Simulated scan of single mutants.
Amino acid sequence: MSRNLKDSFKSIEELSDKKLFTTYEDWQKWLLTFRNLSKNTALSYGYDFKYFLNFLRLHYEDNKVSLSILNNLKVQDYRSWISFLSSKNILIGAKSLARARASVKSFFNYCILNKKLENSLIFQLSSPKIPKSLPRPLSDNQIKKFIARINEEKNTIVKLRNKAFVILLWGAGLRISEALSLKTNDIKNDYIVILGKGKKERLIPLIPQVKKVLSEWVLERSKIKVSYCNNIFINFNGKKITPRYFQKFFYNLRNELDLDINVTPHSLRHSFATHLLKNGVDLRTLQLMLGHSSLSTTQHYLKVSNQFVNQTYNKTHPRAKISF
Results as ranks from 00 to 15, higher is better:
Phe108Val: 10
Tyr110Thr: 02
Tyr110Gly: 01
Ile112Gly: 06
Ile112Trp: 09
Ile112Lys: 10
Leu113Val: 12
Asn114Trp: 11
Glu118His: 10
Asn119Gln: 12
Ser120Cys: 12
Ser120Ile: 12
Leu121Phe: 10
Ile122Lys: 10
Ile122Tyr: 08
Phe123Asn: 06
Phe123Asp: 08
Phe123Pro: 06
Leu125Arg: 09
Pro128His: 08
Pro128Tyr: 04
Pro128Gly: 09
Ile130Asn: 11
Pro131Met: 08
Leu134Ala: 13
Pro137His: 14
Pro137Thr: 08
Pro137Phe: 12
Leu138Cys: 13
Ser139Asp: 14
Asp140Ala: 08
Lys145Phe: 11
Lys145Val: 07
Ala148Met: 09
Arg149Asp: 15
Arg149Trp: 13
Ile150Asp: 10
Glu152Asp: 15
Lys154Ser: 15
Ile157Asp: 09
Lys159Asp: 15
Lys159Phe: 13
Leu160Glu: 12
Leu160Pro: 00
Arg161Phe: 10
Arg161Cys: 13
Arg161Asn: 11
Asn162Thr: 05
Asn162Lys: 03
Asn162Gln: 11
Asn162Trp: 01
Lys163Trp: 10
Lys163Pro: 07
Lys163Arg: 14
Ala164Ser: 14
Ala164Tyr: 05
Phe165Asn: 03
Val166Arg: 03
Val166Leu: 14
Val166Gln: 07
Leu168His: 05
Leu169Tyr: 01
Trp170His: 05
Ala172Gln: 02
Gly173Pro: 06
Gly173Thr: 00
Gly173His: 06
Leu174Arg: 01
Leu174Cys: 00
Arg175Gly: 02
Arg175Glu: 03
Ile176Phe: 08
Ile176Val: 14
Ser177Asp: 02
Glu178Thr: 05
Glu178Lys: 06
Glu178Leu: 04
Ala179Val: 04
Ser181Cys: 04
Ser181Phe: 01
Leu182Lys: 04
Lys183Ala: 07
Asn185Met: 02
Asp186Asn: 15
Ile187Tyr: 02
Ile187Ala: 04
Asn189Gly: 05
Asp190Asn: 12
Ile192Lys: 00
Val193His: 01
Ile194Phe: 02
Ile194Gln: 00
Leu195Ile: 13
Leu195Cys: 05
Lys197Arg: 13
Gly198Asp: 06
Gly198Cys: 10
Gly198Asn: 03
Lys199Gly: 07
Lys200Thr: 11
Lys200Pro: 06
Lys200Tyr: 08
Arg202Ser: 01
Leu203Arg: 03
Leu203Asn: 00
Leu203Val: 13
Leu206His: 00
Leu206Tyr: 01
Ile207Arg: 07
Pro208Asn: 08
Gln209Asp: 14
Gln209Leu: 14
Val210His: 01
Val210Trp: 00
Leu214Ile: 09
Ser215Leu: 06
Glu216Ala: 12
Glu216Leu: 10
Val218Glu: 02
Leu219Thr: 13
Ser222His: 11
Lys223Gly: 05
Lys225Met: 12
Val226Ala: 09
Asn230Gln: 13
Asn231Ala: 07
Phe233Leu: 07
Phe233Tyr: 10
Ile234Arg: 03
Ile234Pro: 05
Asn235Cys: 05
Asn235Thr: 05
Phe236Ile: 08
Phe236Arg: 13
Phe236Asp: 12
Asn237His: 14
Gly238Pro: 12
Gly238Asn: 10
Gly238Gln: 12
Lys239Gln: 14
Lys239Ile: 09
Ile241Ala: 00
Ile241Gly: 04
Thr242Leu: 04
